[in-house]
Simulated assay, not measured.
Amino acid sequence: MEKIVCCSEQETMKAARSFGEGCTSGDTICLKGELGAGKTHFVKGFVQAFGLTPDVVTSPTFSIINEYNGDLPVYHFDCYRLEHVQEALEIGAEEYLYGDGVSIIEWPERIEPILPADVKWIEIIAINSTERQISFF
């Protein structure tokens, strides 16, 4: 496991972009962290690894899945509002998770039973209003 501390949103985005550069088609990245920890900012940096700008990223809290078409498709899940795994199945989550793009998931514990076996986990912990500890495992 690797841990880093980022002292700003820009540092978080830079770390996420660097991480994203090591991802390939079919990868699933699970982001753990409390509300306000910086998961969406991580995604904003992550998509830059695929030729996208951070401003394409919006929280998919109500739509559950946003698709970003970059060098590879990036599927951004926000499962916060899901109460049952069945809800994810009904919107076709498995097609994304086992498709040709890269999936990055906020609140993955809500759909854990349908996640691929080889997911990459990232935990973001807010140390204070600007610093974040990011653990990659």
Rank of each mutant, 00 (worst) to 15 (best):
D71C: 12
Q48L: 00
S59T: 11
L52T: 11
G22T: 12
V57M: 03
E106P: 02
F19I: 04
F19H: 05
V74M: 12
E87L: 02
P108Y: 04
L97F: 02
V47P: 06
I64V: 15
K32E: 07
A37K: 08
I29Q: 09
T28S: 14
G70S: 07
G20L: 05
K44I: 00
G51T: 04
T40I: 09
N69Q: 14
I111F: 00
P108A: 08
P60T: 06
D78H: 08
L82A: 06
G22S: 14
L52S: 13
S63T: 15
G70W: 11
K44V: 00
R110T: 00
F62R: 09
G36T: 04
T24W: 01
R17L: 01
H76V: 11
G51C: 00
I91A: 05
L52Q: 10
D71E: 15
S103Q: 09
L89R: 15
I91P: 03
N66F: 04
D100H: 07
G51M: 06
E112N: 12
K44D: 00
Y80S: 02
I29H: 13
N66S: 15
E94A: 10
P60W: 12
V56L: 15
D27K: 01
I105S: 08
P108W: 03
E94I: 02
I105F: 12
A93G: 11
P60S: 09
D27Q: 04
V57R: 03
T61A: 07
K32C: 02
G99W: 03
K39H: 07
C30Q: 02
P54V: 04
A49Y: 02
E109T: 05
S25M: 01
V56K: 15
L31D: 05
E34F: 13
F19W: 02
Y68P: 05
H76T: 15
P60F: 10
K39S: 10
G26Y: 08
V102L: 07
R81G: 02
A16Y: 08
S18G: 06
F19K: 04
T53M: 13
G99A: 07
G70A: 11
S18L: 14
R17C: 04
G22I: 09
S18C: 11
L72M: 06
K39N: 05
E21C: 09
E109P: 00
F50M: 00
G38P: 06
G45Y: 10
L52V: 10
E94L: 12
E106K: 01
N66R: 03
G33E: 06
Y96P: 06
E109N: 14
E21I: 00
Y96H: 08
T40W: 08
V85W: 12
S59L: 05
R81N: 03
E94K: 15
S59R: 12
D55S: 11
E21K: 07
G33D: 04
G22N: 15
F77Y: 10
T40K: 07
F62K: 11
V85K: 11
T40L: 09
